[in-house]
Simulated assay, not measured.
Amino acid sequence: MWKALSERDWDAVKSHLADDCIYADMPVGPAASARGPEDIVKRLKIGLEPLASYVNHDGLLVADGATVMYEHSETWEWRTGETAVLRFVTVHHVQNDRITLWKDYWDMSALVNFAPSTWLDDLARADMSWIYDATGQI
């Protein structure tokens, strides 16, 4: 899944997600989650598709039964030249070889500090039809 995400191969990313998978960026909380492969990819595209370059850097991977924790970093480079290295801890729950829950923990201020000045405005104009309120579910 991470290789597909690094390549921004959206169909391959979807193939790793359960039909009812929930994706949550924990800095913004479960009220702005996405549910299902189509909406999760819509959500991911908001951040990753406009980038000139996106690279996932491997890190520590730990599994305990169906729970997988992955400490990694990502380098985001915008077409305007700004670059950010974002450090993540991702928690996946996996059942039947599909991700059923995906939670990302990271420092949003690191992104805001290095993103182009137009980034927040672009985010405000993005398609938000993917929003799913997962409060109480994760």
Rank of each mutant, 00 (worst) to 15 (best):
residue 4 A to M: 11
residue 5 L to C: 02
residue 6 S to H: 06
residue 8 R to Y: 08
residue 8 R to P: 00
residue 10 W to M: 07
residue 10 W to I: 05
residue 11 D to Y: 06
residue 11 D to V: 11
residue 13 V to T: 03
residue 14 K to I: 07
residue 15 S to D: 14
residue 15 S to C: 10
residue 18 A to R: 03
residue 18 A to M: 09
residue 19 D to G: 15
residue 24 A to T: 01
residue 24 A to R: 00
residue 25 D to L: 12
residue 26 M to K: 04
residue 27 P to V: 13
residue 29 G to L: 07
residue 30 P to H: 12
residue 32 A to Q: 08
residue 32 A to D: 04
residue 33 S to E: 02
residue 34 A to R: 01
residue 34 A to L: 03
residue 35 R to C: 10
residue 36 G to N: 03
residue 36 G to F: 05
residue 40 I to E: 00
residue 41 V to S: 01
residue 41 V to F: 01
residue 41 V to A: 00
residue 41 V to H: 00
residue 41 V to W: 01
residue 45 K to Q: 05
residue 47 G to R: 03
residue 48 L to Y: 02
residue 48 L to V: 07
residue 50 P to T: 06
residue 51 L to C: 08
residue 52 A to Y: 04
residue 53 S to A: 15
residue 53 S to P: 00
residue 54 Y to W: 09
residue 54 Y to P: 00
residue 54 Y to G: 08
residue 57 H to C: 11
residue 57 H to R: 09
residue 57 H to T: 13
residue 57 H to S: 14
residue 57 H to N: 12
residue 58 D to Y: 10
residue 60 L to V: 06
residue 61 L to W: 04
residue 62 V to T: 02
residue 66 A to N: 12
residue 66 A to M: 08
residue 67 T to D: 06
residue 68 V to K: 00
residue 69 M to E: 07
residue 71 E to W: 14
residue 73 S to E: 10
residue 75 T to H: 05
residue 76 W to Y: 15
residue 76 W to A: 13
residue 78 W to T: 06
residue 78 W to F: 09
residue 79 R to M: 08
residue 80 T to G: 13
residue 81 G to E: 07
residue 82 E to D: 09
residue 83 T to E: 12
residue 83 T to G: 09
residue 83 T to N: 08
residue 84 A to V: 11
residue 85 V to D: 10
residue 86 L to R: 03
residue 88 F to K: 03
residue 89 V to W: 01
residue 90 T to C: 13
residue 93 H to V: 15
residue 93 H to F: 10
residue 94 V to L: 10
residue 96 N to E: 13
residue 96 N to W: 02
residue 98 R to Q: 15
residue 100 T to N: 04
residue 102 W to A: 03
residue 102 W to I: 02
residue 103 K to A: 11
residue 106 W to K: 03
residue 107 D to S: 12
residue 107 D to F: 05
residue 108 M to A: 10
residue 110 A to S: 12
residue 113 N to F: 04
residue 115 A to R: 04
residue 116 P to G: 10
residue 119 W to C: 09
residue 119 W to I: 09
residue 120 L to W: 03
residue 121 D to K: 15
residue 123 L to M: 13
residue 125 R to H: 14
residue 127 D to C: 12
residue 127 D to H: 10
residue 128 M to F: 13
residue 130 W to S: 03
residue 131 I to V: 11
residue 133 D to H: 07
residue 133 D to Y: 11
residue 134 A to Q: 03
residue 134 A to L: 07
residue 135 T to Y: 13
residue 135 T to A: 14
residue 135 T to D: 10
residue 136 G to P: 07
residue 137 Q to M: 15
residue 138 I to E: 05
